[in-house]
Design a protein around this nucleic acid. Structure first.
Length: 493
RNA sequence: GGUACCUUGACCGAGUGGCUAGGUAGCGGUCUGCAAAACCGUCAACGGCAGUUCGAAUCUGCCAGGUACCUCCA
């Protein structure tokens, strides 16, 4: 096989609670499924963290040579607000509120989701299936589960029988919990409940006549339960067993636990080899969530239009901020942390333009090959982006020092350094340069050269008031001015 | 109540049984007309109490504080 993957990647697997060597089932092909958003409201920053984390994972897998099929769903139906609500799903509820068709809601927030993720420079998944587009697949799967005896129908609603499943499977594997403990934590069955067991969850839910989104099924009209869509769609596109299943940690205990149960009841094999969970984004130590109402919308963050924000921060500042923590740790969100990230991000970007100005020397005073290996080693260790970034800052120091002739690099090493920076900063971390410099704008370039000339002669004549006036007023307009030996450099932020 | 997890310097945040994380901020210096940037140097930490160990911030126990999940949430 000419697609030999040479890196030895280690991934933390929630199933075993240890780091495991990553060995795909059909290397170099990798199947990865990530739970996407429920599109009934705007995505907040916490949601974005998960998608950015998996974007970096996806990018690194591609970078080291894997052929990845990345499936991320859109939940646009069937996601109940709770077992005890009136039977409408989230879309119908919101639709009534806004006087819109459910699919209008879905369309609106799907577009918003894509817009936000594209601002964060995430790559689109290979397949982005919707729940409503896979009703038939879900019904088929439910039917098989009924046949296998792990589900039962009551009055048009189909429930998964957790206790029966537990007789020969371990229901709580993902969270390392025993059934008895789980039962202890659950509410008593209320009188109106038709479920047999307290942990049983709905696969198919009977609709009322007025329910807006409903489909015919062998059990009458209704709509699918939340968990079944992911099992049905991951099976359809990645097979009954695939490599990586990801999502936020909040999905681990319920959604993913139920997915495993459904899939095993359906196919009798464990559906996922590596379960990967990203940790939560917190604000003042508390988890950012829709229900808690402490969620920042990306738009508020970019504009600074939020009571907790002193000012706005750019999408790449935020992306860099997130990459500075490991995906399995909680990350706390604050003005100070964002300001620190912004400075660091700019310094990193700045060094990339310095890189083109370095004159190669006869020998190298530092080992670039070693630096390169350290960068890969960091990512190979469960995608440790903070360690990677610490090495990239070593590179920044080398680059700046080489410009100042304090370090020297051979032309080969200089090439390697450029390649490392390009690969890791742009391809793997998925950052991009947001600064708006002269590239592609000749008028601006000519204008700035003219101003630079005027200021240069003013300085030569020790006319400091003119030279300072030019600098100060350009700064006020948003230009960043840096004096050099022969003039000044500028960039527009 | 049950089950997990977390507590690192001014702030964010890695890691590890003995070896400088990194960024931001601070301090001193180089450079500069001044500033900014950059570079060099530097300060500073491992919640508390016991234990295991030649050695623990890293392992164990207890305590304190915090968070999450068990019910919709990435």
């Amino acid at each position: 096989m000419n697609n030999e993957i040479t890196r030895k990647l280690v991934i933390y697997n929630t199933l075993s609670r240890t780091k495991e060597v990553f060995e795909p089932i059909h290397s170099p092909h990798v199947g990865m499924y990530v739970c996407g958003p429920t599109v009934y409201s705007d995505v907040h920053l916490g949601n974005c963290r998960t998608f950015i984390s998996f974007d970096i994972i996806y990018r690194y897998l591609l970078h080291i040579g894997y052929k990845v099929r990345y499936v991320r769903n859109i939940t646009d139906a069937g996601h109940l607000e709770g077992d005890h609500d009136e039977g409408d799903d989230k879309f119908a509820k919101k639709a009534k509120l806004e006087q819109l068709e459910p699919m209008e809601i879905v369309q609106k927030y799907t577009l918003g989701f894509h817009e936000v993720l594209s601002m964060f420079n995430t790559l689109p998944p290979s397949i982005e299936p919707t729940a409503t587009g896979h009703i038939i697949d879900q019904i088929e799967m439910i039917r098989k589960i009924l046949e296998s005896g792990y589900a039962y129908e009551v009055n048009g609603t189909v429930y998964f029988d957790v206790e029966k499943y537990s007789n020969n499977h371990s229901y709580g594997v993902l969270t390392n919990r025993k059934l008895e403990d789980l039962l202890e934590g659950t509410r008593e069955l209320s009188g109106q409940d038709e479920k047999k067991g307290r942990l049983d969850f709905a696969l198919w839910i009977k609709s009322k006549p007025e329910t807006l989104m409903q489909w015919p099924s062998p059990w009458g009209n209704g709509f699918p339960g939340w968990h079944i869509e992911c099992s049905a769609m991951s099976t359809k596109y990645l097979g009954t067993t695939f490599d990586i299943h990801g999502g936020g940690m909040d999905l681990q205990a319920t959604h993913h636990t139920n997915e495993i149960a459904q899939s095993e009841a359906f196919s009798n094999v464990s559906p996922v080899k590596y379960w990967v969970h990203t940790n939560m984004l917190t604000v003042n130590g508390a988890r950012m969530s829709k229900t808690a109402g402490n969620g920042f919308l990306p738009k508020e963050l970019f504009t600074g239009n939020h009571p907790l924000l002193e000012r706005g921060y750019s999408p790449m500042t935020v992306r860099f901020f997130m990459a500075q923590s490991q995906y399995r740790s909680t990350l706390d969100f604050s003005n100070e942390a964002l300001q620190a990230a912004e400075k660091g991000y700019k310094r990193l970007m700045e060094s990339l333009s310095v890189l083109d100005k370095i004159v190669p020397g006869e020998v190298s005073s530092v080992s670039i090959a070693e630096l390169k290996e350290k960068c890969y080693a960091a990512m190979d260790d469960d995608f440790n982006t903070p360690i990677l970034i610490s090495h990239l800052f070593d590179a920044v120091r080398i680059i700046n020092s080489a410009r100042d002739k304090q370090e020297t690099l051979t032309s080969d090493d200089l090439e390697m350094l450029k390649q490392i920076m390009h690969s890791f900063v742009f391809e793997v971390l998925g950052l991009k340069d947001e600064s708006n410099n002269s590239a592609g704008n000749e008028v601006m370039e000519g204008l700035m050269n003219l101003i630079a000339d005027i200021r240069k002669s003013a300085r030569a004549n020790k006319d400091w008031s003119t030279s300072d006036k030019i600098r100060d007023e350009l700064s006020a307009l948003g230009f960043e001015i840096k004096d050099t030996k022969d003039g000044f450099e500028w960039r527009l932020n």
